[in-house]
């Protein structure tokens, strides 16, 4: 499903070069639930961005569902992100000017769907995360855990085959974190979603099938 070969990522600023990822080889099968662990600054978010096409690797290749994504034009990359990947961020990244249901509909806006179809799919996704009663609320009217559930609904509404989560529980207390984890595991089991979750939390990581450990931008085992 996800295949990284010899991926390297270098950040160049005026003074320094940071080697954020180096020599990453990673094969993630369809339906796998993988967690990525490592200390702060070890390259976890960089890996998340590279897998999700939010950033290009400096070297090496990334394949999603067998499709090579290097050098694709902007429109194609946008299409692949839209179809294949759902993102969940540590800071939720909900659009504060839009209410819950409009936030959840965003991925569907970039497909040719009727508005009633979008609406019913978004409602289904919100039901899946237990927030069907909050569709007209704005993000600022929700708790952190609820906001992250909205974000999950948004990530799954387009039924992508890959879910990428960067410290999804990082801004939540442990009880809310557990809830989020439960939802992700459910998605993995019921929908056979391939999930890559970056996390600091060893207890959550242990619940996943495989742990990829990073240290200074390198894989360690």
């Amino acid at each position: 499903m996800i295949s990284l070969k010899n991926v390297e990522k270098v950040y160049r600023t005026e003074e320094i070069e940071t080697l954020a990822l180096s020599g990453i080889n990673l094969e993630i099968e369809e339906g796998e639930f993988v967690s990525v662990m490592g200390p702060s600054g070890s390259g976890k978010s960089t890996l998340f961005n590279v897998i999700g096409l939010l950033d290009e690797p400096s070297k090496g290749s990334v394949l999603l569902a067998g499709e090579s994504i290097q050098g694709l034009p902007d429109r194609e990359q946008a299409r692949i992100r839209n179809r294949q990947v759902g993102f969940i961020f540590q800071t939720f990244h909900l659009i504060s000017d839009l209410d819950v249901i409009d936030n959840v509909e965003i991925p569907l806006l970039y497909r040719h769907l009727s508005s009633s179809e979008r609406r019913s799919r978004a409602l289904r996704a919100l039901e899946r995360v237990g927030l069907a009663s909050r569709v007209r609320h704005f993000p600022s009217q929700l708790s952190g855990g609820q906001q992250q559930r909205v974000a999950i609904a948004r990530a799954i509404v387009g039924q992508p085959r890959i879910l990428l989560a960067d410290e999804p529980t990082g801004n939540l207390d442990s009880q809310m974190g557990e809830e989020i984890m439960k939802i992700l595991m459910g998605l993995n089991e019921d929908e056979k979603a391939t999930i890559v979750m970056v996390t600091h939390d060893a207890r959550l990581a242990e619940k996943t099938e495989r742990i990829v450990r990073l240290f200074d931008g390198r894989q360690v085992n």
Partner: peptide
């Protein structure tokens, strides 16, 4: 943030 989110979820530049 909105621009980032929209791009992540499939908005092209156009």
């Amino acid at each position: 943030s909105e621009i980032g989110v929209r791009k992540a979820f499939g908005a092209s530049k156009f």
